[in-house]
Simulated scan of single mutants.
Amino acid sequence: MKKNVLLLILVSFCLSSCKESPQFHKSHYPEKAEAPFSDAVEANGFLFLSGQIGMDHNTRELVDGGIVPETKQAIENIREVLELHDSDLSQVIKVSVILKDIKDFNAFNKVYVTHFTHQPARTTFAASGLAKDAQIEIEVVAVK
């Protein structure tokens, strides 16, 4: 809880005191060029990524197999966006995870801990009705 509060204070302070204009980065995938959101927004040394689901962006379909492969694919999608903007998973400071079913928490977490070994702040909750009927959506905040 203390990590989340400190993170929010830090982000709020930087966003209110820094003068750099945000840069809105559209997707590098042509199929997503007209999406009504940016894949990443860069502001004052931070990258705010839109949520990623377990979609293979080449086929535009969710990967088969449920929560484990969807979690792996969502994290790979995040890794790809971060690398395009000169960052990587080790620079992630905050993760928000939305599960379709909270019963999938343990299976998701087994995958998660292999990719986020530095233990960024995290919020996890369940909600029904994710995009494309996905099992999981993950969004992150990272530094460059």
Rank of each mutant, 00 (worst) to 15 (best):
D56V: 00
S27I: 00
L84F: 11
D101R: 10
I93F: 03
T123G: 05
E80T: 14
E139W: 09
D104W: 07
Q91L: 01
L84V: 06
K3T: 07
L7P: 00
A142T: 00
H57N: 11
I138S: 00
R122N: 02
L62G: 00
V68G: 03
S12K: 09
K100L: 02
P69G: 05
L10H: 11
R79Y: 08
A107M: 09
A121H: 12
F105K: 15
I93R: 05
I78P: 02
F24Y: 13
H115D: 09
Q119L: 08
G65D: 04
K103C: 08
L99Q: 04
V63T: 00
S27G: 00
V11L: 15
R122K: 12
K144A: 06
E70M: 07
T124L: 15
S90Y: 04
V143D: 03
F125L: 10
S21Q: 11
Q23V: 13
D133W: 00
S38C: 12
S27N: 02
K32N: 15
A134W: 03
S90H: 10
P22F: 14
I138M: 01
I67Q: 07
L6M: 04
D86H: 11
L84C: 07
F105A: 15
M1F: 15
A121T: 13
S87I: 04
T59F: 05
G129Y: 09
